[in-house]
Amino acid sequence: MVEILDWVRWGLNHSDRVLMLTFEHLRLSLPAILASLLVSVPIAAAANRLRPLREVIVSGTGLLYAMPSLPLFIVLPIILGTGVRDMINVVVALTLFGISLMVRSAADGLAAVPEHIRLSATAQGFSPWRRFIGVDLPLAGPAMLAGLRVVSVSTISLVSVSAVLGVQSLGSLFTDGFQRSIVASIVIGILATALLALLMDLLLVLLGRLLMPWTQTARTSAGPVGRGRGR
């Protein structure tokens, strides 16, 4: 029990540094999360359009997830021509992981938009582009949000690894704590990372409710709203 007090005291004493590292952590993970969404949607849409290549593209990007993070952080600078400790590498690598998780969610979500609704939108005079933005994307929204939540948790957890290379993030609390044998540093680091992942998740759920209010409505009627998976 004494230890817990020690950890709390350490955290309070170093709150400036923890906050700064949290900020750095977000500076690495937020662009990656956002970029993986923005890159995945067009890839998914294209994959769905090119029927025969769909599985190749979706599985192929999924294979990116097999890439070990640390080696990727090291190989990327060579390919990109940046320095090993450059934050660009980390963001690009994290984006690649994000894409590997996100493309399937987006492709499945877009493919699950009911055909009669797409037909109906076409009949109302939606141009193909407008239909994609105004009908396909919002209706694939819930599936994409589910994917993005996984990306968010995974990204925030993975950022820490880059600390081994000397990139600043909450992971620095692990490397510092390990090298100087400060348990409190590591414990606070783990808690802060988990808390950050949790908060981001809550934020995404909230954002989903705000942007997709129709998913909150009753699913009692046989209307086309509920596309939830049966058990």
């Binding site: 957890s157 820490s160 081994v164 992971g171 590591i186 783990i190």
Partner: peptide, 15 residues
């Protein structure tokens, strides 16, 4: 899943 592995490794290693 939200726990960072590097954190776990270093923490257990200290003990």
């Amino acid at each position: 899943r939200a726990l960072p592995t590097l954190g776990l490794i270093t923490l257990v290693a200290l003990f």
